[in-house]
Design a protein around this nucleic acid. Structure first.
Lengths: 356, 356
DNA sequence: CTGAAAGCGCTTACAG
DNA sequence: CTGAAAGCGCTTACAG
């Protein structure tokens, strides 16, 4: 017995001056228990006397013990890594919010967040995701829009048995984690705002067809028209792709109409910025001669002139919820509400005005 | 022999339907060598006969062998994780480029990139970095501006003996990896452009004092004035902080002058956007009555009206170089050029015009 | 040029 | 409620 301890002490002939870095053995010795008990306490497992638990916790603090993640993963088969697979779009403020929200939950829960940007469309997307999931050893994945809308992605993750949390308004399997906000209702409110301002010819620029949000936003627009007994005119609706250029081009076609709209609702801010740019190029005053509204409330919307009327989503909270529910699932706790809805908020600024 | 084969076949009574996941032992058996030899081949170590190497590589392919990262880290003391510590700023396009550039190098080299946003100023920055470095087990760190400019950060990393690559124009220890572009020369060129357009009263909005780039850009402005025999007027210089609001406020003070400038050079695009906004609020035509130039060529600069004259940095390449040199260092190869300079490029758009 | 042994620091069964 | 043993899949010394 004595000799064991001796040899233990002799062992510490480290060549580096760096701090020793306590292991589970050091903590066990310090607390006078077995390493298994330390493991139980550190992992918050049950069946440890409170007194023992306190003793161990004290030693953990005294030695500044931090479990070795590699050893944990090797023996426990758990990597504690969550992947964030996203479209590498130009507009990054949405992703930045998603990232910060998810990280804020992952870090305190002891999970690392690993990012994987993808450039769409990508014919090899399945291979790329498969490789990422394998190489990075992710236990679960967060899928911000539009990744959760791509049929191949969700199907692949299901096949690989990797749990995921999708942020998208598109309906999902009731057992899968789905976070979204009420795009349809927000679009309805925004359209209604324009109607209440006297606009009747309201142009609409649709979003990218691969995004679940696009259909919802368009549906809200149509419902508002219907509610207010305004006939739906297909010629006032143009396809966009959520980027500046497509918004600008769609606006051009709308303004070329014999009877152009007095207001344009773009399905996101980037396209609304394109609309404002096009209006300015044509010498049209915004909002005097043309009202323009967007969607997303990007950082952009208060930097351009005039500041944009738009819709704000609680993206940080949505990402936090996505990460939290995913971690619950990974930890074997059934998520309380796999499908969670958040409220959007219409933000009225200067790019829309009553029709004179 | 025959029996061995037999038993091999019987072995495949796996209970899971998932693919077996080959280990180094499987590869060794398949190739008829020891695990040590497999290890040598996989890690590209010398002293293996070409014939043996080929045989092992074939088995690796046949079994789709991928080394277990956790086991590797546990035994080899190397995590193959690089941290990216950045300021969580609103303007994210710079960071997005940094991230994509670094990731493009890390992934093929077998390194993971772990992001750590920080909100500045942060009194606990040292603790936070220390904890990140420990928890995430980063081997090295990439420090995009302005993280490399904060004296505490570099000092802490040195103390922890964690190699880092700083992207900043500020001078560094010649042994440390430093990536930057020629901010001073670019600012000189931009100022010269305005001078050549006939401007004499050129306002300057300085960048955040904690960023190394700020001093360089200011120096370029002063040198251009001097070169062209224009007296330096302190009243035409205002302090900004790289954000929209400070750019707008500084522009307001400049325009309130008895003899306001005919052109304003802002040290980044965000402040230039603020300048344009302020000019518009005052009913000043840009560039007709006031020329405005920025710095950075953010995605923003072509979205606002008028499109911004600015300076483009090859950020993706700079980040790639930072990551590549850092990985060289981590792998024990001395970086070829620890201090590397890139060229910036002046991009002339519509926000600047000859003085009439 | 190649390999047998030890060990990295944990967790998972399994005892008691 | 607690612990002794085995083992996760590699790499690091060390032999030959």
């Amino acid at each position: 017995m004595e000799s064991l301890r001796e040899s233990g002490h002799k062992m510490k002939q480290k060549s580096k001056p760096a701090r020793p870095k306590a292991t589970i053995f050091d903590v066990a010795e310090h607390a006078g228990v077995s390493i298994k008990t330390v493991s139980r306490v550190v992992n918050k497992e049950p069946n440890v006397r409170q007194q023992t638990r306190d003793k161990v916790l004290e030693s953990v603090g005294a030695l500044r013990y931090q479990p070795n993640a590699a050893a944990r993963e090797l023996s426990g088969k758990r990597s504690r890594i969550i992947g964030l697979i996203y479209e590498n779009a130009e507009e990054f403020s949405y992703l930045n919010d998603v990232f910060n929200g998810a990280l804020g939950i992952c870090e305190p829960a002891g999970f690392s967040l690993l990012l994987r940007p993808l450039t769409l469309p990508d014919p090899d997307i399945a291979d790329r995701i498969r490789q990422f999931a394998t190489n990075a050893r992710v236990e679960g994945v967060v899928l911000p829009a539009p990744m959760g809308d791509l049929p191949g992605v969700a199907a692949l993750l299901r096949e690989m048995r990797i749990p995921f949390a999708a942020i998208t308004p598109r309906e999902a399997d009731p057992d899968e984690i789905n976070i979204h906000c009420n795009d349809e209702a927000a679009s309805f409110s925004l359209t209604e705002l324009l109607i209440e301002q006297g606009h009747r010819a309201i142009g609409f620029i649709k979003g990218h067809p691969d995004h679940g949000a696009s259909a919802k936003r368009f549906a809200g627009y149509r419902r508002a028209l219907k509610t207010h007994w305004i006939a739906y005119a297909p010629r006032l609706v143009r396809q966009g792709y959520f980027d500046f250029d497509s918004g600008r081009a769609a606006t051009g076609r709308l303004l070329d109409l014999a009877e152009p709209p007095s207001a344009i609702l773009a399905s996101n801010d980037d396209m609304a910025a394109g609309a404002i740019f096009e209006a300015r190029e044509r010498g049209l005053a915004v909002p005097g001669e043309l009202s323009i509204a967007g969607f997303d409330d990007t950082r952009f919307s208060t930097r351009i002139w005039p500041p944009l009327t738009t819709v704000r989503q609680p993206i940080i909270q949505m990402a936090q919820t996505a990460a939290a529910l995913l971690i619950d699932k990974l930890n074997g706790r059934a998520p309380a509400a796999p499908r969670t809805t958040f409220e959007c908020e219409v933000v009225i600024r200067d790019s829309t005005a009553p029709l004179c």
